[in-house]
Computed example of a mutant assay.
Amino acid sequence: MSLISAEKLGVRLGGHEVLSGVDFAIERGEIVTIVGPNGSGKSTFLRALIGAQPLNSGRIVRAHGLRIGYVPQRLHIDPTLPMTVARFLSLPRRRGAADVSRALERVAVPHLEGRQMADLSGGQFQRVLLARALLEAPDLLILDEATQGLDQPGSAAFYRLIEELRQDLGCAVLMVSHELHVVMAASDRVICLNGHVCCQGTPEIVASAPEYRALFGTGTQGALALYRHDHNHSHEGDCDHAHHRHEEEA
């Protein structure tokens, strides 16, 4: 059984259809990345999976006892509010000092317990958010553009850590990313989303699918295109046929 699956998932926000007919499943130990232009419903889809966004149609099925660790796209903490890392990691449930220490070591920022959250660098802050997610001992780790605002070396190091955690913990990883070179390096499967699933498969298959190229252009970085925030796109139908055709060609 999949850890979590969505069947014909649909979401409307403010009378606008954001997601329609989305089918999805992820297995234990798998790394799946969702790509798509701004406004394509990526974050809404993640919120629907964790139960924070009501559905208008379809259903979500979770494995019994599924534990999810969630790393949000951004989290604002008032810089005037005194809050240590240890205190933050103990919200909303109190955590023992040994658990906090172990989680911080696991994400390669040991000895930050006494530091103020407001004093952390961007990379440290994201790793503390990741440590908080790991305290749930997750079967599924969900990251919503968790490296936004980090420079390229910091981002690459963060995703290498994610891959190590997948190997060490055996958890599945579902992430939204705008860094397509990371997608190629780290993902078992890529889902291209633009209100519905345009195409999916291994990174190489998705990169060669016409639906993907219509969204992102053809670019020059190997098979994967450069991400274009301003690229408008409309299309019809599904790309299962393209997915299978490119799989045969691969």
Rank of each mutant, 00 (worst) to 15 (best):
A131M: 03
L150H: 00
A156L: 15
G114F: 15
E136Y: 10
A108R: 15
V109D: 10
E105M: 14
L141F: 04
R115V: 09
L135N: 05
L150V: 01
A146M: 08
Q152G: 11
G154V: 04
I142L: 13
F125W: 12
L129K: 10
D151Y: 01
L140M: 09
E145K: 06
A133Q: 05
R127E: 11
Q126F: 07
A108K: 14
Q126G: 06
R115P: 09
A131H: 01
V128Y: 08
E105G: 13
G154R: 10
G123N: 00
G114K: 13
L104W: 10
P153N: 05
T147Q: 03
T147K: 02
D119S: 14
L141S: 00
D119F: 11
L129Q: 14
D151I: 00
P153A: 08
P138V: 08
F125E: 04
P138H: 06
L129G: 10
S155M: 14
A146E: 02
L135F: 04
L141C: 02
G149N: 00
R132W: 08
F158T: 06
Q124E: 15
L112N: 12
A157R: 12
A146W: 03
A156E: 13
Q152V: 14
L150I: 01
L129F: 15
L143V: 12
P153Q: 08
E145R: 12
L120P: 09
A131I: 02
F125G: 06
L134F: 01
L120V: 05
S121E: 02
P138S: 11
A156S: 14
E105D: 13
R127M: 11
D151R: 03
G114D: 15
S121Q: 02
G123R: 00
A156M: 12
L120W: 07
R102F: 10
L143K: 09
R115Q: 13
V109E: 12
L134T: 03
L135E: 04
